[in-house]
Design a protein around this nucleic acid. Structure first.
Lengths: 203, 203
DNA sequence: GTCTATAAGAGGATAGAC
DNA sequence: GTCTATCCTCTTATAGAC
């Protein structure tokens, strides 16, 4: 760990502020509807200054997505540390965290097939590396949980992985919240139940 | 049924062609990334002519969404007609149809909270009317299936409804298809299984 | 690195002839 | 109703002074 000058610290702090703003705006409006002007205004600097930190709108969003995956990885680490938790317990915990984060408006939307972000992200080494790290960690839990008989063995592990990833952009949360009749906690538990137990009644 | 002049028939046929193109492009790229120029080029008429038929890009998309719900309603009717099908059978059938349609690239993406389409659609009487009709029909099936003990009774019917609606934009289909290793039919069955049976193994 | 000002271009919508 | 040509706004990105 090299020592940083005061100037460098300020620089990093500013970039963190930018990335956090972008993460929130991405969650709120999505990539297409988020404008660079808006980001600059929110951070409180001129747009041209933003472009000194990040080369393009895509780079801005990629940095936010890298940060988002970083948060997920931190969450994974903290669940690894829980003693006595089974693999499926950990999968449920990370899924619940994902739902809570999305409901709190802090989860930048995953890039769908058609997203303009998608190509930029696929070309981004840092993003892809972290995404693969995350997938490997979750993949190990999934295989373990299937071997435990806790997760359906018929499903290919990647189908399970994608299903959990998809919770990050599940519109059901927003639909239920829009009704205004249920607490966030209640909504999360219902979506957790449909995800792991399914819509059909268990015998 | 009033008789239509040849001219009127041509007019309607053209609007149908436009709506079908928009439905496909909406499914492919989403509202923001679909351009009016593109729609016009695809239909084979000038952009200005397009605006003689529809007042705005939003109106264009709304017409496509109305059409999409119309297709779903047609599907619902045809399932109503199946003798001996239980309520949950019908729910599964409409869900499977939704997944197949999305996988075939013919399902315009549902408007998320943040979509620019959302406000236009909420203000669109035809769309809201049809959406409510569809919701009523599916809602009746859901209540029946819960009373049959086939769908989990703990879940509020609207949570079940939204979960089924959300299959229209489930990214898991695209993720699995992108891998290229599975047939469409296989993918649909896995998503059906996770939707109705959940990720957890059934005892 | 920050700012103001502006270039460059995409895309929604319209004018006006036919 | 269809076309060509154009308008105009919004947005990304950069020039150039400090």
């Amino acid at each position: 760990m090299t020592r940083l000058s005061f100037r460098q610290k300020v620089h990093i702090a500013r970039e963190d502020a930018i990335v956090n703003t972008v993460m929130r705006l991405l969650a709120e409006k999505g990539f297409d509807q988020m404008t660079v002007d808006e980001v600059a205004a929110d951070v409180g600097i001129a747009k041209a200054s933003l472009y000194k930190h990040f080369a393009s709108k895509e780079a801005l969003a990629a940095a936010a997505m890298v940060q988002a995956i970083g948060l997920a990885l931190t969450q994974v680490e903290s669940e690894q540390a829980v003693a006595g938790a089974s693999a499926v317990d950990k999968l449920k915990a990370i899924t619940r965290w994902t739902l809570q984060t999305q409901l709190a408006g802090a989860m930048p939307t995953l890039p769908a097939e058609n997203s303009s972000l998608r190509n930029a992200l696929i070309a981004n080494r840092a993003y892809m590396d972290r995404l693969m790290t995350l997938s490997d960690e979750l993949g190990a839990w999934i295989v373990q949980a299937q071997s435990d008989g806790a997760i359906e063995r018929q499903l290919p592990p990647e189908a399970v992985l994608f299903t959990i990833y998809a919770r990050a952009c599940d519109p059901v949360l927003g639909f239920l919240k829009a009704g205004g009749r249920y607490s966030d906690g209640q909504i999360v538990e219902w979506v957790m139940a449909t995800c792991f137990n399914g819509l059909a009644a268990r015998a």
